[in-house]
């Protein structure tokens, strides 16, 4: 268990700059999600922290020690791979005990710690099985047990849940969070699934084209995105156009130049609302009814807006009907133009 600190890390592959002057702190015992679209550099950053890659410039510290030139074998990290990378020729117990064997832990202690780790991931009694004979969820638990049994300073997870189907993934999210709390290990995980990042992490960092765009607690990043990219990437956001259509009324807070509104903050009405500061006229293009809520696509002067609202006025409306969108000024998200 340790804090991890990344300072000014740059990594190039030939002409391509995968990481561009990235600085980030990962607090001791925290659960940190690195989020970004593919090609954003999030996996490269994870591999730099793991020690599979050495940065071209910058500093990586684990527990205060500079490690940017220490190879992965000596870095005392635990890593879980997207493919789980279980050793197919070894049993579950041998897989979990692999890292203890390389560290020359006595056999009796190895047995005890493997047993404890399998208990932690709720796989007691499956130690003799080969990975082939396990389900996807069980393999994932074995990979997790193998990564944490050596008491690494930091646990790195590369898209840990993406190979599981949806229902199993939600179970594993809860499970992963429980285990991380129980062990108290500093955890950094890479994902492109924003929902997963918001559910699991207590801090998230958003990367784009090798740069760190924003980092902070999920709620803060969600409610105050620094730019349109973050606003759109973390949940959905409707960006206010520079030129407002006729009939619109928008009360931008002072000093704010560009703004976005989350779909769930919008109200959709057939009549022009009187009692609100922000209104936009539009045309209903499409609606998808989903129980108590409906998702609507509204055309606002040629720009598509997404609205998630209670199914209130909608039944009376026909497609192509003129509608009004309104929201409270408190829900206006300030963003840097981008």
């Amino acid at each position: 268990m340790a804090e991890v600190s990344v300072r000014g890390v740059t990594k190039r592959f030939g002409e391509m700059t995968a990481l561009d002057d990235v600085s980030l702190d990962f607090v001791n015992g925290g659960f940190f999600a690195l989020l970004g679209p593919s090609g954003s550099g999030k996996t490269t950053l994870l591999r730099v922290i793991a020690g599979f890659l050495f940065p071209d410039a910058g500093e990586v510290r684990i527990a205060g020690q500079p490690v940017e030139r220490v190879p992965v074998e000596k870095r005392e990290i635990g890593m879980m791979f997207q493919s789980y990378a279980l050793f197919p020729n070894l049993s579950v117990a041998e897989n979990v005990g692999f890292g203890l064997r390389t560290r020359k832990v006595p056999r009796a202690e190895e047995r005890r710690r493997v047993g404890e780790a399998l208990e932690l991931v709720q796989l007691e009694g499956l130690g003799e099985r080969k990975p082939k004979a396990l389900s996807g969820g069980q393999r994932q638990r074995v990979a997790l047990a193998r990564a944490i049994v050596t008491n690494p300073k930091v646990l790195l997870l590369d898209e840990p849940l993406s190979a599981l189907d949806k229902s199993l993934r939600v179970d594993m999210q809860i499970e992963l969070k429980r285990i991380q709390r129980e062990v108290g290990i500093t955890t950094i995980f890479v994902t492109h699934d924003q929902e997963e990042a918001l559910t699991l992490a207590d801090r998230i960092g958003i990367l784009r084209e090798g740069r760190l765009v924003q980092a902070g607690p999920p709620r803060e990043v969600y409610n105050a995105p620094v730019d349109a990219f973050t606003a759109r990437f973390l949940g959905e956001a409707n960006i206010l156009p520079d030129i407002l259509p006729e009939g619109a009324r928008v009360a931008l807070p002072s000093g704010m130049r560009a703004a976005a509104v989350r779909p769930e903050a919008l109200r959709l009405t057939a009549e022009q609302p009187e009692d609100t500061d922000n209104i936009l006229p539009g045309r209903l293009v499409q609606r998808v009814f989903a129980g108590s809520m409906a998702t609507c696509v509204v055309d606002v002067a040629g720009v598509t807006w997404k609205v998630i609202d209670r199914d209130r006025d909608l039944p009376q409306l026909s497609d192509d009907a003129a509608v009004w969108l309104s929201w409270d000024t408190a829900d206006t998200l300030p963003i840097a133009p981008g």
Binding site: A50, F52, P71, V72, E73, K74, E76, I77, G78, M79, F81, Q82, S83, A85, L86, F87, P88, F98, G99, T102, R103, R146, A147, T150
Partner: peptide, 18 residues
């Protein structure tokens, strides 16, 4: 043999010969 397997072993502290 998946490269991930070799990398996983390295992350667990294994040397090349191991």
């Amino acid at each position: 043999i998946d490269d991930d397997i070799v990398e996983a072993a390295r992350s667990l502290g294994a040397r090349r010969l191991t």
